[in-house]
Design a protein around this nucleic acid. Structure first.
Lengths: 160, 160
DNA sequence: TTGACTCCCATATAATCCCATGCTAGTCCA
DNA sequence: TGGACTAGCATGGGATTATATGGGAGTCAA
């Protein structure tokens, strides 16, 4: 599998560990690194996550910037200082950094939601709320998206 | 690991020593030198740090400027005269030069923040302030950055 | 000889390894 | 068709390792 899709709710155990869903792991390993890159979402109370491809894209967009510009420091700080590279153990679990748990307001359960190139981790109730609004928005914008929503097919091609 | 990311707060002990975070050490050793190059940030009350690659890039970018000899001297003096090369001990600790402690206004704690090809060391409260500003700026400039900042809602961008 | 620095070792906490259990979905076979 | 077997996955928990930190002792130079 090449992109992140579907969503599941997994448990955060007493040691703070959580299993990366198996379907997500297969995407990550396909990208070449058995682990995740995660950071607080800029726009939601959620954690954004992705694999090697996502981080390569970000790094590439930054490479062109000048070395000594003040703006560059601000931008790279925003992008990298809250981003964690975490490889999962042989059972497919990671332990979440405290700042991210706080940002997403996680308790003992977390929803993994696939978004194509990346995925998000949500407090399950908050995600339900977010998803219902997201569906509305997607419906409003259906004409921008093309035939995919009408047929229910081939979302996969959109994201490559 | 190839680039500096994530951030941690470490303690400066009574002898003035501080541990370089393990994830940063692995980047530095990947670059071939078990130590850091650190110098006062030009734009912030912080310490800039990096490994061999950062220093090489700085030297290279100076060369490309094609300056007259005396201009080059002036520039390299400005860049390198305040730069310290410090290898860490076997526990991964360095002791910070006094001028840098003063420049960054450090007390007994320091935030190590990854910025990709370099990292910065901040007084923790000052860093919190800087980071929240940085996130705002990044949101304003989200179009420059690409996939990191998108929520997954803006499906229109996925298709190009 | 003093102060700065390094080497070496000790320790508490956090992260990771390793193995066991239970659930679920799928498959096979009578 | 239904029941048993199997494989893959999420989860629980004890054991082990890694990391940051504290502090004693040695080294070197002014």
């Amino acid at each position: 599998m090449k992109i992140f899709m579907s969503s599941t709710i997994n448990k955060i155990d007493s040691k703070g560990r959580v299993s990366i869903p198996s379907v997500f792991r297969s995407v990550l390993e396909y990208q070449g690194f058995p682990g995740v890159y995660i950071y607080p979402s800029f726009t939601s109370q959620a954690i954004d996550g992705g694999g090697q491809i996502l981080i390569d894209q970000i790094a590439e967009s930054v490479e062109k910037m000048q070395l000594f510009a003040e703006e560059t420091d601000a931008l790279t700080t925003a992008l990298f200082s809250d981003t964690f590279q975490i490889s999962y153990d042989q059972d497919g679990r990671i332990s979440l950094p405290e700042p991210l748990i706080v940002h997403a307001n996680l308790k003992d359960k977390v929803t993994f939601a696939g978004l194509g190139q990346k995925f998000q981790m949500w407090e399950p109730e908050a995600f339900k709320e977010f998803k219902s609004q997201a569906r509305l928005k997607a419906l409003e914008n259906r004409d921008l998206i093309g035939p995919a929503l009408n047929t229910g097919l081939k979302l996969s091609e959109e994201s490559e």
